[in-house]
């Protein structure tokens, strides 16, 4: 650094400091004056950032809600969903399986849609959106159109039976290993094909509801076709009990437990994203694992 003979302006000294690691030796007072000058700007900037952050937080809290959460979070969840589906989701990624002996009866969590007494003989699985069948309306259940097909449990059992011991992951954070037996949803879709869309694919979504319509979940096509997605009628070697979703429930290890709907009454193939009970309460619609 050049020794200074002339008085330098404050700005010169500061800009010199900004480009150098170390100032020239300064008197106590001069050092104090310069560091205060340097600090003022930084602290002012820091204060502005804190202020902006606070305003941003206030702004966030004022945003309108989109199904139980504000649209910023809803959008963020959707972006995450897109990243998962677009980059690393694969039907070849399987949920880990466990020895049959590790399976336990899971806790009875969630009884929405199970309030009415089950009449096993009268139970039917109603399908909407099939390639062959009755008329479908966009109004869906609200119009109560006749289903394209109504199946019995025997119809499901005619499909190849699959058994697996997988982990049931609750969105609350606990996991339980359970043994399941049922038919692959992909086999079921092959047997009862829905109307294909313009790309010769099955519709983008599957909506599933309890018979009384009190509980309902929406699935994306890829998750519905995953090889571990089953329509189950047996748990741990015994027929399903009513609390666990008799006579037929969904088991889908690529989703949180909330999507594993019990006592299925209606399956609907649709090109529009179906409503989902917990997504309406502010949870992620995708809820994929």
């Amino acid at each position: 650094m050049e020794p200074t003979k002339q008085m330098k302006s404050e700005q010169q000294k500061i800009s010199e400091l900004r480009t150098n690691e170390l100032s020239e030796p300064l008197s106590e007072e001069e050092a104090k004056r310069q560091i205060q000058h340097l600090s003022r700007r930084s602290f002012l900037r820091g204060g502005l950032v804190i202020g902006a952050g606070f305003l941003g937080w206030k702004w966030l809290n004022r945003q309108y809600t989109d199904d139980g959460t504000n649209w910023v979070f809803r959008r963020a969840l959707q972006v995450n969903e897109g990243i998962v589906q677009g980059t690393f989701y694969s039907a070849n990624h399987l949920s880990p399986t466990f020895p049959r002996a590790q399976a336990k009866d899971p806790r009875e969590n969630g009884d929405f849609g199970l309030e009415e007494e089950l009449d096993a003989d009268a139970w039917r699985l109603h399908l909407y959106g099939l390639a062959e069948g009755g008329e479908t309306t966009e109004e869906g259940m609200a119009m109560m159109p006749p289903p394209d097909a109504s199946l019995t449990l025997e119809d499901i059992k005619k499909l190849p039976a699959v058994e697996m011991t997988t982990q049931l992951c609750c969105i609350e954070g606990w996991v339980e290993v359970v043994n399941w037996k049922g038919a692959k949803l992909s086999d079921f879709i092959e047997k009862y094909p829905p109307v294909k869309d313009e790309n010769k694919l099955i519709p983008a979504y599957v909506g599933i509801e309890t018979p009384d319509g009190a509980y309902y979940v929406g699935l994306d096509r890829e998750s519905a076709l995953h090889p571990q997605t089953l329509l189950c009628y047996e748990m741990n070697g015994k027929p399903l009990t009513p609390e666990h979703g008799a006579p037929l429930r969904l088991v889908i290890p690529v989703k949180y437990g909330i999507k594993n709907i019990k006592r299925i009454g209606v399956i609907r193939f649709t090109s529009e994203r179906p409503k989902d009970y917990w997504a309406q309460q502010g949870y992620d619609w995708y809820a994929g694992l």
């Binding site: 690393f88 694969s90 990624h93 399987l94 949920s95 690529v254 994929g288 694992l289």
Partner: peptide
């Protein structure tokens, strides 16, 4: 977050509960 998509990672960390 994605114990099925990254099952190899979850398993190598000792499983879901251990990782949590």
């Amino acid at each position: 977050y994605k114990p099925t998509q990254f099952a190899w990672l979850t398993t190598s960390l000792g499983g879901y509960e251990t990782a949590r």
